[in-house]
Computed example of a mutant assay.
Amino acid sequence: MRKIIFSKLLVPILIIIIIVLGSYILIKGNFKEKVTNENQATSPIAKESTAPLLIDKSLYEEKTYTDSTKYTTFKVTYPQFKNASAGFNQEIKNLVMEGIETHKKDSEDTWKIRYENRAPGDTITEFPKADEKFDFSVTWKPAQANAKFINLILTISGYNGGVHGYATLVSFNYDVAKKKEITLADLFPGDANYLKTVSEFSRKNLEAQFGKDLVVSMLNEGTMPTEDNFSVFTFTPDTITFYFNQYQVAPYAMGVSKVTMPRK
Rank of each mutant, 00 (worst) to 15 (best):
K75F: 03
T110M: 11
I124V: 11
Y65G: 04
L14N: 13
V96H: 03
I27E: 13
F74D: 04
K75G: 05
K34L: 15
S49M: 12
R118D: 02
T64R: 09
Y65P: 02
L26T: 13
A86D: 15
K104W: 08
I45V: 10
N83A: 06
K32D: 14
S85W: 06
Y24R: 14
Y78E: 00
G22I: 02
A41E: 11
L21F: 12
N117V: 00
K8Y: 15
L21E: 10
Q90T: 08
A46K: 12
N39C: 03
L21D: 07
S49I: 12
S7Q: 11
Q40A: 15
Y24I: 15
I92W: 03
W111P: 10
A86P: 04
I113P: 02
A51W: 00
T64Y: 05
I16A: 14
I45S: 09
L95D: 06
E98A: 07
D56T: 00
T42L: 14
E62M: 08
E116P: 05
K47A: 12
P12V: 00
P44C: 01
K57V: 05
D109F: 06
D109G: 05
E116A: 07
E38V: 13
V20N: 06
S68Q: 11
G29Q: 13
H103L: 07
T66C: 06
P52L: 10
K93F: 01
Y24K: 14
M97A: 00
L14M: 14
I17G: 08
N30F: 09
S23C: 10
Y71T: 02
P52W: 04
R114N: 11
T77L: 05
N37E: 15
Y115C: 06
K70G: 10
Y78F: 00
L54E: 03
P79M: 01
K34V: 12
H103C: 03
N117P: 08
I15C: 08
I19S: 10
I16K: 04
I27A: 13
K75N: 04
L10N: 07
R2N: 13
Y71C: 05
N83M: 01
I13H: 06
K112F: 07
V96T: 00
Q90Y: 07
T110V: 09
I27M: 11
S23P: 04
T72Y: 07
S58A: 09
V35P: 06
N94F: 07
G29V: 03
T110H: 09
P52S: 05
T73H: 04
Y60R: 09
K63I: 11
K57T: 11
Q40D: 14
R2S: 14
N83T: 09
G87Y: 04
K93A: 12
R114P: 05
K34T: 14
G87I: 00
T64W: 02
P44Q: 03
